[in-house]
């Protein structure tokens, strides 16, 4: 492995099971800060599972492999040993495909807790929160940049939000938390063309040279302002092929037939996973 001169998120030979069924079957991925990677693949190939495993969802069991944060000087931090909130405080972020609602908790109050913790990783509950005045100034300025109505911050977290509002709320949180590494899980799904364009521009503005971003998407529009350094294709729980931005365009235009034909083993795994999922749901 090349010795990184910048911080990297390194996923090595990652195997993940849910309810005893293996979903990821050896994923390798390395993202440096400032890089944009696209992750594409058919439904059920394991893209969201990778996001959840990186963030530490308790239902996603890592059976082997590692996820590490590697500092510029080569120091490695084992992400798997951390609780999800410790991962967030270490600079990892997941924009949820389907964010949870928390009725009764205003987005602003939620974000104030989040921002305070992420910026003061050692903070214990009950310690001072970021001063309200400073927080509000920053929140209003970020919402302005994202063309969001400030009234939005007073609403309860994702409670009664439309699909588009939820995604915008996720982008706002990304902007406020400024993680080192972010996984954006279909942040474009459920949005109309204009909203996707706005999301794409927003992510580009937030990201910059400081953030490593893994964009999970079925479409290429979100990549319009976020040209991926690499595009990865996931099939049957593995990344089977990686390429440049042209690969994303190809998959968007032509689908996954070429991929399935080229990687029969992964295609068979995909089929087996589909069948077993069907058996479970019956």
């Amino acid at each position: 492995m090349t010795h990184a001169a910048k911080e990297t998120l390194v996923v090595s030979n990652l195997h993940v099971s849910v309810d005893g069924q293996e979903i990821l079957k050896g994923v390798n991925l390395e993202i440096g800060r400032g890089e944009i990677h696209a992750l594409m693949g058919p439904n059920g190939s394991g893209k969201s599972t990778l996001g959840y495993a990186i963030m530490g969802h308790p239902s996603y069991e890592v059976t082997s492999g590692t996820i590490e944060l590697v500092d510029a000087d080569g120091t490695r931090h084992d992400i798997l040993a951390m609780e999800p909130d410790q991962r967030a405080r270490a600079g990892v972020f997941l924009a949820f495909q389907r964010p949870m609602s928390i009725p009764g908790v205003r987005l602003a109050d939620f974000l104030r807790h989040a921002v305070t913790n992420v910026r003061n990783p050692d903070r214990k509950e009950g310690h001072e929160l970021m001063p309200m005045r400073d927080f509000r100034t920053e929140l209003k300025s970020k919402m302005g940049e994202l063309s969001m109505d400030t009234e939005f911050a007073r609403r309860y977290v994702n409670d009664g939000f439309s699909g588009g509002e939820m995604k915008r709320a996720e982008i706002l949180q990304l902007a406020m938390l400024r993680p080192k590494f972010a996984v954006l899980d279909e942040t474009d799904s459920g949005l109309d063309a204009d909203a996707v364009r706005l999301a794409s521009e927003s992510i580009a503005r937030i990201g910059g040279a400081e953030m490593g971003i893994l964009i999970i998407t079925h479409h290429e529009q979100l990549l319009e302002h976020n040209i991926p350094l690499k595009t990865h294709v996931m099939l049957g729980g593995k990344i089977v092929e990686s390429g440049g931005p042209e690969l994303a365009q190809e998959l968007h235009k032509r689908g996954y037939e070429r991929i399935r034909a080229a990687y029969p083993e992964a295609a068979a795994a995909e089929k087996a996973m589909e069948e077993s999922a069907r058996a479970v749901s019956v």
Binding site: E83, D85, A88, M100
Partner: peptide
Amino acid sequence: QIFYAQARGLS
């Protein structure tokens, strides 16, 4: 809900 909040840095 707990996981979602944890993912945002809340214990």
